[in-house]
Design a protein around this nucleic acid. Structure first.
Lengths: 137, 137
DNA sequence: GTAACTGCAAAATATTTGCATCCTT
DNA sequence: AAGGATGCAAATATTTTGCAGTTAC
């Protein structure tokens, strides 16, 4: 029910205000979030450092993963349930809207496999599509 | 012949030591370069600010493009000849080696198109593959 | 009660901007 | 000679680290 608590407990994390609030943000957000988004959406209730550490913890536990971006920002998004620590199965496509700048996880669009040149062994593949999202079209 | 000069002239850029050296680095490097790589490989001959400005200029002119990364670094790689200002046709796959950390442009591997959900209009697609490269296997 | 989390301060790092000087054309 | 590029200084912004106080369990 209260999935925020479930997720934290499942990952052996103590339940604190910051973690609850930040995780809640991810659950209620359709897209990915940057560090700055989190500060804004929590009205700066938490220290910048706490946000850094919380995000880092979540990534280590496999609760969120980060999304490749072309600029120098780091975006984070919720991992699917089948993520394990360190090993994510977030093999879906990420979509960045050129209009509203939101990054959306297209959970239903699977990243296709590509044939690599001789000698290259793939391990993980990420795909980012830029364009106009359904809301903005 | 001296393609460094060709490229600079073609883009209406004055030929300076910094631009020559940095562009040369890209031409002679198989992979992508980060800001720090450039400083290192030029023995810090140029001011940090000059490197920032040079990279920015090159991106604006479409000489290089940046590559999405999962961490917060920015990687730059040469554009193919058919890049125009602002509109890049770098529709090839980028490969990041987990061992040597090099980023390699797989010019021959074309990014496949994926079917997006209703309402989404793609514009540009980028694909990054992690794994072990041919040199490290 | 203890281990872990948080906030503050400060250090370390990265990026941007203004301006005077130098170089390319 | 003129416009643009560079280097330096400094302002901003970002991220990391140490430590003391607080909180979850």
């Amino acid at each position: 029910m209260n999935s925020v608590l479930d997720i934290l407990k499942k990952n052996d994390l103590s339940v604190t205000d910051g973690r609850k609030k930040i995780l809640d943000l991810f659950l209620s957000s359709e897209g990915a979030l940057a560090h700055a988004d989190i500060e804004t959406n929590t009205s700066n209730a938490f220290d910048r450092v706490t946000v850094y550490r919380t995000l880092q913890t979540f990534v280590e536990k496999g609760i969120i993963h980060n999304i490749p971006t072309t600029d120098n920002s780091i975006l984070y998004a919720l991992c699917k349930d089948d993520c394990e620590e360190g090993h994510h199965h977030d093999n879906h496509v990420h979509f960045i809207c050129n209009n509203c700048s939101k990054t959306i996880c297209l959970d239903d669009v699977i990243v296709p496999t590509v044939k690599l040149p001789k000698g290259f062994t793939p391990n993980k593949t990420q795909m980012v599509v830029n364009g106009v999202c359904a809301d903005c079209k």
